[in-house]
Design a protein around this nucleic acid. Structure first.
Length: 578
RNA sequence: GGCCCGUUCGUCUAGGGGUUAGGACGCCAGGUUUUCAUCCUGGUAGCACGGGUUCGAAUCCCGUACGGGCUACCA
């Protein structure tokens, strides 16, 4: 297809959710694959939900991941402006056109009146039937309408949905989707504040920006029928973009993380959140119910089903738990389960509204990208690791899955470890340095590079380098006593003192030389690797876990390594004696 | 409740009339002659259910169940 143009159109209401990141990625991949254009459009038509800094965050997140737009706010392009709040006049013009052509009408009902109508009848829908008894330019006389308009009575503009029509459209991932127009309500197109709704703005902008493919989340599938109607009413049906609705990213299954060790904490957390959100049900013993429900792991969904006899508190808590445990991955899940759901950290107005990102958890962007790419799409063969350029080459929208995928942090961690092992030492060193400095260390670049090279197979995320390898920078904080009790024989102290002397004699303190010295020592005293090396390791690191001991000693340097041997052997004597 | 969408190992998925139902993560076991990790080998575990259609169904059709989305002057 020529001039393929795709847009990623987030609204700046806070941090960009990981599902949004995947949507951006798929848009980017499709555009790049076909030599098309990837556009960022900011959908800021809801002034009440606008959050300062959110747009900046979105741009930074895309940059971090390396999927930067070709057109967008701050970037430019021939189809701007790229913020919907700066395009108000345009929407007004097309709304006017719709009114004149009879596809839309003024409605004077207030939000409060509509709330009342919905309360009276929960199934209330502003549709072909309802509009006859509401206050709008269809039910009112022309004079009344004109008077109301002249008086400046607040009003909205609604789409006049035709009755009894089947609206069919082709979705790239789902195939043919059909809606009966009688089921559709008369959506608001222009709000009382003069801003368009998403529906109006996205249709107008997609046309004006010559968007060829709309790739967005499944939550939009239902309103696509309205969008099709809008294209039709505006006379744009021929130019209507192709649609692809992506399956959602779901919360991890509770069964996968609930066990003896996590159930109590999760139960009290849920009870606490519930109490905060519904103070009116404070009397209900939510924690007890949560505990019981979680313990009966297999039947959680069944036990959460509401029953007639449930009192108000129980019913409310069941509903709360259901939405907390199942469904779309949400920002709260990150905290609850201890993993990131945002690309970058976000500092909101409150601690409640602040989140740690994948970047700050110590994930590499290529790992996040790779993980996300495969959540809902796969190339059909057995390859798992993909560079961004490879993804661009082989991405195929037809292979996007139809059903939602559960978020699996273990898989993300595995990708991260794989990419860390592959990563260039100099780059890794740059990424790890700030963590070391935060812990009061000022090592040389060469030292950090040597360190990450030895440690990277033992780290899953960046902070693991320090967590698991602090002893490269400080002397061991403690020695693994059990191991020493088992392995250290004080009667060999003198022999080991000799080994220290041998080490001191070395003029080239390289791993090879250290190893050779150790071997000479073992041969002389008829000792085995297993009797010597663990002692060296314990003296250097305090723990049995760690990289190759001789390389480690080389990196620490002769002076430090020997100092640790002396200190260690002395400590071992004391531990065993006591 | 209504409308729309979906359902293959615990999770991500391949397979779309005849397969020992394949791979990856996780988990378990063994190996890689110091540990941990990496790596390698093996194991564990799955077609939601019920009816059709067919010589033959995980695969096609219909129902049921379950899951998800939408149902705002939010996007």
């Amino acid at each position: 297809m020529e001039n393929m143009r795709l847009r990623f159109a987030p609204s700046p209401t806070g941090a960009l959710h990981i599902g949004g990141v995947r949507t951006a990625l798929y848009n980017y991949l499709l555009a790049r694959k076909n030599g098309g254009t990837f556009i960022l459009r900011i959908e800021d038509t809801d002034q009440t939900r606008y959050v300062e800094g959110a747009e900046q965050y979105i741009v930074e997140a895309l940059e971090w991941l390396g999927i930067t737009p070709d057109e967008g706010p701050g970037i430019g392009g021939d189809f701007g402006p790229y913020r919907q709040s700066e395009r108000k006049d345009i929407y007004l013009k097309y709304t006017q056109q719709l009114i004149e052509s009879g596809h839309a009408y003024y409605a004077f009902d207030t939000s409060e009146e509509l709330d009342v109508a919905r309360e009276k009848d929960p199934t209330f829908k502003y549709d072909a039937m309802a509009r006859l008894r509401m206050r709008n330019s269809i039910s009112m006389s022309a004079e009344e309408v004109e008077a109301a308009l002249d008086e400046g009575i607040p009003h909205v503009v609604r789409l006049k949905v035709p009755d009894n029509e089947t609206i069919l459209f082709e979705d790239i991932v789902r195939g043919e989707v059909a809606f009966d127009s009688s089921e559709l309500d008369d959506k608001v197109l222009l709000k009382a504040d003069g801003m368009p709704t998403y529906h109006m703005a996205n249709v107008v902008d997609d046309r004006l920006m010559e968007i060829t493919h709309v790739v967005r989340g499944e939550e939009w599938l239902s309103s696509t029928a309205h969008h099709v109607l809008l294209y039709r009413s505006l006379g744009w049906e021929q130019e209507m973009p192709a649609f692809a609705h992506l399956p959602l990213i779901l919360k991890p299954a509770p069964e996968s993380y609930l066990d003896k060790s996590t159930i109590p904490a999760m139960a009290s957390r849920m009870a606490e959140e519930f109490a905060r959100k519904y103070p009116e049900h404070a009397g209900y013993k939510a924690e007890v119910f949560a505990l019981q429900t979680f313990q009966d792991k297999k039947n959680i969904p069944a036990n959460l089903k509401e029953k007639e006899k449930d009192q108000a508190g129980k019913a409310a808590f069941k509903a709360f738990l259901k939405s907390a445990l199942y469904g779309k991955l949400s920002k709260r899940d990150g905290d609850r389960l201890g993993f990131p759901v945002f690309p970058l950290s976000w500092k909101g107005a409150t601690a409640e509204d602040s989140f740690t990102g994948f970047r700050e958890y110590g994930f590499l962007p290529e790992a996040v990208l790779n993980f996300l790419a495969l959540l809902g799409w796969n190339p059909g063969d057995e390859q798992e690791m993909f560079k961004l350029e490879e993804l661009v080459d082989i991405f195929s929208p037809e292979r996007i899955n139809k059903s939602g995928s559960r978020f699996n942090i273990d898989k993300a961690k595995w990708f991260n470890q794989q990419y860390m092992i592959k990563a260039d030492d100099a780059r890794l060193a740059r990424l790890v340095r700030p963590i070391l400095e935060a812990n009061g260390q000022q090592p040389s670049d060469a030292f950090v590079e040597g360190f990450v090279s030895l440690m990277k197979e033992r780290a899953v995320t960046l902070p693991d380098f320090w967590e698991n390898g602090y002893y490269f920078f400080e002397r061991p904080r403690s020695y693994e006593e059990k191991m020493i009790q088992k392995r250290w024989q004080p009667e060999r102290s003198e022999q080991f003192a000799e080994l220290v002397k041998d080490m001191e004699q070395l003029t080239n303190f390289s791993a090879d030389e250290i190893k050779a010295a150790a071997e000479r020592f073992m041969e002389k005293h008829e000792l085995k690797f297993g009797e010597v090396l663990p002692m060296l390791r314990l003296a250097q690191a305090g723990t049995m876990k760690g990289p190759a001991i001789f390389e480690m000693m080389e990196l620490l340097g002769q002076e430090e390594a020997i100092a640790r041997l002396k200190l260690g052997f002395e400590a071992f004597d004391n531990i065993v004696q006591s």
